[in-house]
């Protein structure tokens, strides 16, 4: 029922957006414009299908000491729901082989399972929390899960040039009350609708973190992916760099590969 409600909301808002586009010249509210930009962003990224990737996370503390974490990812795009993802941890060695399966949902808590190789058991994690740190990094789990329109209320703020690129600046307010943020300010470039930068504000409205994407690379002639992302925590001076070493599309993954029953066999 919830799903139906949501999709009807989506349809209505889509219709509204189209109408507002059609009647261009008609004054568009900041909310409408924000939503339209977010939708275009989602739309431009539609159809990537599936991917596999290899990543490093470099954790740095305020004193500049650093430590590296490694993992590889498998992702599957879903049209009518959030994406599915598998994270396989490679480093540190004591968590090697641990697999994390996540079904992103816009409003309800994600479905999450974890395979612990040492226990050789799959555990389902039931938690409303999605803002905890991912592997001790400055990324919260919610920063890494897929972008869904229903997760936020949008508001267009202004146009701005960021690092030489003409951009829209949007405010997005999480709809989930368990989010760690009161709002995010997002810089989306006008040409490709790629996210260039995000500012994360904590629940009391103070700037918490800043994310900047670098080294955008085009895949399948359509999909831009940043190969390097920096997340800097403004409050404690720690930062995390996320580096994508390898990224492949059309790898032939299917829904069957994202199954809690077969987690033990995931490599």
């Amino acid at each position: 029922m919830n799903r139906n409600f949501l999709s009807s909301v989506t349809i209505i808002s889509l219709v509204l957006t189209l109408m507002s586009y059609a009647s261009s010249g008609h004054a568009q509210s900041a909310q409408e414009k924000g939503l339209a930009i977010a939708k275009e962003r989602k739309l431009r990224d539609k159809g990537w299908g599936d991917s596999t990737g290899n990543m490093s996370m470099i954790l740095r503390n305020a004193q500049g000491e650093e430590v590296e974490r490694k993992m590889h990812l498998k992702s599957l795009e879903l049209v009518d729901d959030g994406d599915k993802g598998l994270t396989i941890f490679d480093q540190p060695l004591d968590v090697k082989g641990t697999v994390f399966l996540n079904f992103t949902h816009a409003i309800e808590p994600d479905d999450q399972w974890m395979y612990l190789p040492k226990l050789s058991k799959v555990k389902r994690i039931r938690s409303r929390n999605k803002s905890g740190p991912f592997m001790g990094s400055e990324f919260a789990f919610e920063d890494m899960s897929s972008f869904e329109i229903e997760k936020y209320k949008f508001k267009y703020l202004r146009d701005e040039t960021f690092e030489g690129q003409a951009s829209f600046v949007l405010e997005q307010e999480p709809t989930d009350e368990n989010s760690g943020y009161s709002k995010q300010i997002v810089w989306v470039d006008k040409k490709h609708y790629r996210v260039l930068k995000i500012e994360f504000y904590d629940r009391k409205g103070s700037l918490l973190k800043e994310l900047v994407n670098y080294e955008f690379t085009l895949y399948l002639d359509k999909f831009w992916r940043p190969l390097r992302t920096e997340m800097f925590n403004e409050q404690n001076g720690k930062s995390t760099e996320l580096i994508t070493h390898e990224l492949n599309f059309n790898t032939g993954l299917s829904d069957n590969d994202f199954n809690k029953g077969t987690l033990k066999n995931v490599r």
Binding site: L59, N61, E65, V67, F89, P92, D94, V95, K96, T98, F100, Q112, M114, L116, P117, K118, L119, K123, I125, S127, R128, N129, S131, G132, P133, F134, M135, G136, A140, F141, N178, S179, G180, Y181, D202, R203, K238
Partner: peptide, 26 residues
């Protein structure tokens, strides 16, 4: 490894602000 895997699982399930950074370093 078991201890490390517990911690990995637990950390990901905690909400904002209630993480383990007050007890464990990076």
């Amino acid at each position: 490894e078991l201890a490390a895997q517990y911690l990995l699982l637990y950390e990901m399930s905690l909400p904002y602000g209630l993480d383990l950074t007050n007890q464990l370093d990076m």
